[in-house]
């Protein structure tokens, strides 16, 4: 497998191997150390956060105070619920629309097949400007509505193409036999195609879910009401912009843990879902990216 085992070429020198090891260790540390620091600070005790000047790399003890105050029912709790709602509803809508579109595009020769495929492919080439998109959402009366965070980004041309490529790889005999048994197209999709496509549905679903969970700019653009803020906007206001997060915002206890611990707890909450699905994403995304590149 490895490219290095080529007959006649001497193995890399010890010096080169040391250089490589150092460079790669450094790269990995650059990614890992900040994560460890964020998690440690969110769990560190008050004394240690103050003593260290704010950022803790290795906690002395574990304190859940920051998480308790964040989940006491204030701004952050609500934002987490909003983000979960948008992610769940959005992903369901996206998957349904994408699967139906991809399935209808996976059957060459059907009515208006080529123009529809062009509509999807062309959408990959440009992004509509900020101003016209904003005016569109405004004109449809979606400003300040959760729908503004879901509908405009519900269908991704790229995901549609990846899913279509997968559907086209399914054995045609199965679709034929479903038709002979009198199944409509919708029934074929639901009963035959989808059960065979669980893996690709899971991958594309996660792709969408990560997008909804991470979306920040649309919320900033379309949502004025702070009550409706998703987690990423709360993160921006209270962590990136350092707005004071007091008992008024958090609700609950009078003695708050240090601001920095609370901030890091919010950051960890935004990170955890991504970290949980990451092993799965990483295995399948790489394949997905290449499928799109080859067959798109």
């Amino acid at each position: 497998m490895s490219r290095l085992i080529v007959a006649g070429t001497p193995p890399p020198s010890l010096f080169m191997r040391v250089v490589k090891a150092v460079v790669l260790t450094l790269c990995c540390a650059l990614v890992i150390v900040p994560f460890v620091g964020v998690i440690s600070t969110s769990l560190a005790t008050q004394e240690q956060v103050i003593r260290s000047g704010g950022f803790v790399l290795i906690p002395d003890g574990v304190s859940w105070a920051a998480y308790k105050s964040v989940f006491a029912g204030g701004v952050v709790t609500r934002a987490v619920l909003v983000s979960i709602l948008i992610t769940v509803v959005g992903t369901a809508i996206s998957l349904a629309c994408t699967a139906m579109l991809a399935y209808s595009l996976s059957r060459p020769g059907s009515l208006a097949h080529t123009p529809l495929l062009m509509v999807v492919l062309m959408s990959l080439l440009f992004t509509p400007g900020i101003i016209p998109s904003y005016l569109m959402v405004k004109q449809m009366g979606l400003l300040n509505s959760y729908w503004a965070l879901i509908i405009p980004t519900a269908v991704s041309g790229f995901n549609t193409i990846v899913m279509r490529a997968f559907f086209m790889g399914l054995p045609t005999e199965l679709l034929e036999s479903a038709r002979i048994d009198g199944a409509s197209e919708a029934q074929t999709l639901l009963r035959v195609v989808l059960p065979l496509s669980k893996a690709v549905m899971a991958v594309i679903g996660l792709f969408y879910a990560v997008g909804y969970w991470n979306a920040f700019f649309n919320a900033m653009l379309y949502i004025n009401d702070t009550e409706k803020w998703p987690l990423q906007l709360v993160l921006r206001t209270y962590v990136v912009n350092n707005a004071v997060l007091g008992a008024d915002q958090l609700g609950g206890s009078e003695t708050l843990p240090p601001q920095q611990s609370i901030q890091m707890a919010i950051l960890v909450i935004a990170l955890v879902p991504i970290l949980l699905v990451y092993p799965f994403l990483q295995r399948h995304f790489a394949k997905g990216v290449l499928t799109g590149a080859v067959k798109g």
Binding site: A96, C97, T98, M100, L101, Y103, S104, L105, R107, S110, L111, A112, L116, V119, V120, S123, F126, P128, G129, P132, S133, L135, M136, M140, I151, P152, T153, A154, V155, G157, T160, S184, E185, A186, L189
Partner: peptide
């Protein structure tokens, strides 16, 4: 029939990718 299945997705692309 297939056209109907494509409709929601195409409508979203038309409204939010092309109309803008």
């Amino acid at each position: 029939m297939l056209l109907i299945l494509a409709l929601p997705g195409i409508a979203i692309l038309a409204l939010f990718e092309y109309t803008p």
